[in-house]
Simulated assay, not measured.
Amino acid sequence: MNSKVRNKVLSQQCREIIASVLEFMQKEATDGVTIPIDKVQECVSAATGVSLSSIRRVKKEVRNIKEHVAVSFPKPKRTNIKTKVALDGFDQGLLRRTIINYHITEKRIPTLRCIHRKMRDVAN
């Protein structure tokens, strides 16, 4: 049997699931079968510690992948913290002139990083 995770670091969540499956299998071996084998989803849920609805969702995604249907994955959460800076008229004018002069002198489109660097140099 070929492993898909060979030579890869397992995440903490993956390790917890493996531990749950090991514990479930050991319990099944000592106590006998507690969940009938024909109830596959319930057995997987008990073994992995993942909710039954999550098991069903994963099963549906796997079926869609096999049928070549587009699968929607959740978008990563953005952790950007947006801060508002209040600029008075003088600072707005300074920023505007910095952008225009950057475009004229450097012959490039200014980026936020470049503008920030220029504004920091002006402030010092």
Rank of each mutant, 00 (worst) to 15 (best):
residue 2 N to H: 13
residue 4 K to M: 10
residue 4 K to F: 15
residue 4 K to T: 13
residue 8 K to A: 06
residue 8 K to L: 15
residue 9 V to N: 14
residue 10 L to I: 07
residue 11 S to N: 05
residue 11 S to E: 07
residue 12 Q to T: 12
residue 12 Q to F: 05
residue 12 Q to N: 11
residue 13 Q to K: 13
residue 17 I to Q: 06
residue 22 L to K: 01
residue 23 E to D: 15
residue 24 F to Y: 10
residue 27 K to F: 12
residue 30 T to W: 04
residue 35 I to D: 04
residue 38 D to W: 11
residue 39 K to Q: 03
residue 41 Q to I: 13
residue 42 E to S: 06
residue 43 C to L: 11
residue 46 A to S: 10
residue 46 A to R: 06
residue 48 T to Q: 00
residue 48 T to W: 01
residue 48 T to D: 01
residue 50 V to H: 03
residue 51 S to P: 06
residue 51 S to A: 15
residue 51 S to W: 04
residue 53 S to T: 07
residue 54 S to Q: 10
residue 55 I to E: 02
residue 55 I to K: 04
residue 56 R to M: 09
residue 56 R to C: 14
residue 57 R to Q: 07
residue 58 V to I: 07
residue 61 E to A: 05
residue 61 E to I: 08
residue 63 R to M: 14
residue 63 R to Y: 13
residue 65 I to W: 10
residue 67 E to D: 15
residue 67 E to N: 09
residue 67 E to I: 06
residue 68 H to K: 14
residue 70 A to E: 07
residue 71 V to Q: 05
residue 72 S to Y: 09
residue 72 S to L: 13
residue 74 P to G: 08
residue 74 P to K: 11
residue 74 P to M: 05
residue 75 K to P: 03
residue 77 K to T: 08
residue 79 T to N: 14
residue 80 N to K: 11
residue 80 N to F: 11
residue 81 I to N: 07
residue 81 I to Q: 14
residue 82 K to C: 04
residue 83 T to D: 03
residue 83 T to H: 04
residue 83 T to A: 05
residue 83 T to L: 05
residue 85 V to G: 02
residue 87 L to M: 06
residue 88 D to T: 04
residue 91 D to K: 00
residue 91 D to I: 00
residue 91 D to P: 00
residue 91 D to R: 00
residue 92 Q to R: 00
residue 92 Q to G: 00
residue 92 Q to C: 00
residue 93 G to C: 01
residue 94 L to T: 00
residue 94 L to E: 01
residue 95 L to Q: 02
residue 96 R to W: 04
residue 97 R to A: 04
residue 99 I to S: 02
residue 99 I to T: 09
residue 100 I to H: 12
residue 101 N to H: 09
residue 103 H to K: 15
residue 104 I to C: 11
residue 104 I to G: 03
residue 105 T to R: 14
residue 109 I to G: 07
residue 109 I to S: 10
residue 110 P to T: 01
residue 110 P to D: 01
residue 110 P to F: 02
residue 110 P to E: 00
residue 111 T to H: 05
residue 113 R to H: 05
residue 115 I to S: 04
residue 117 R to A: 10
residue 117 R to P: 00
residue 123 A to D: 10
residue 124 N to D: 13
